[in-house]
Amino acid sequence: MSDTPTTQISTRPFAYWAFFAAAAGLSLLALGWGFFLAPVEATMGIVQKIFYFHVPCAMSMQALFVVCGLASFGYLIKPRAALDRLAVATAEVGVLMGFFALTTGPLWARKAWGHYWEWEPRLTLTLVLAFMFVAYTALRSFGGSDELTKRIAAGLAVAGIPAIYLVRVAVTWWRGTHPRVVWSGGLTDPDMRIAFWLGVAAIGCLAVVLTWERSRLEAARAAVDELTLDLMERDLLEDDV
């Protein structure tokens, strides 16, 4: 008996490299457009250019967490290793994106609002969400790699979905409002719009690449565990003989 098919780690397919190239190209394009073609904003000045990557990071964080919740839900219904890997990868990349959104936000806010931090709904929501998925990744890194821990983590991610809504309600009743620019047509300049959507595309492709890479790591780890068990079993069999 040689390697079982489950222990094979596939090489990176063409689609991976396509996303990789798209991420690299779009990032350069978005950077160029944001810096050289999009005009400087009238009242905030050059610091507004943070927007072209701050908002895409926050958007991809939310998208990744939703994917994580859905994958976990699927895993609870039908435990498939691929869903679990997807959930781990999206949670970790989502935490990274949340970190970007939460560090670049205050730098911008200092110029735009006059404070680094304000307890304001979207900011609070992003912070609480990031903490929730930090808990998920902590559980996955320190909780062990057994089946029970995977199910518990899936349960946590599923429980996180209604919490997103409830936290949103709570913080909106508690505090004022975040600037809503994109969906209310506030991007007046066409070059600003292009730079922004290029940023969204670039960060989106990057998120896909990072998630892909991270879930490959998870697959390789599972294969190592499996082979180690395999080897131990063979040793035991030999001892019996």
């Binding site: 903490f131 902590a138 559980l139 909780g143 062990g144 821990t149 946590l156 996180g160 919490a163 309600v169």
Partner: peptide, 25 residues
């Protein structure tokens, strides 16, 4: 859930507190 997990004393608040923020607020 965390009964059989290592580090459960630490993981319990890490998992629970973000989820109960709506109640706290």
């Amino acid at each position: 859930m965390l009964l059989s997990t290592r580090l459960r004393e630490v993981l319990l608040p890490i998992v629970v507190y973000p989820l109960v923020t709506p109640v706290l607020i």
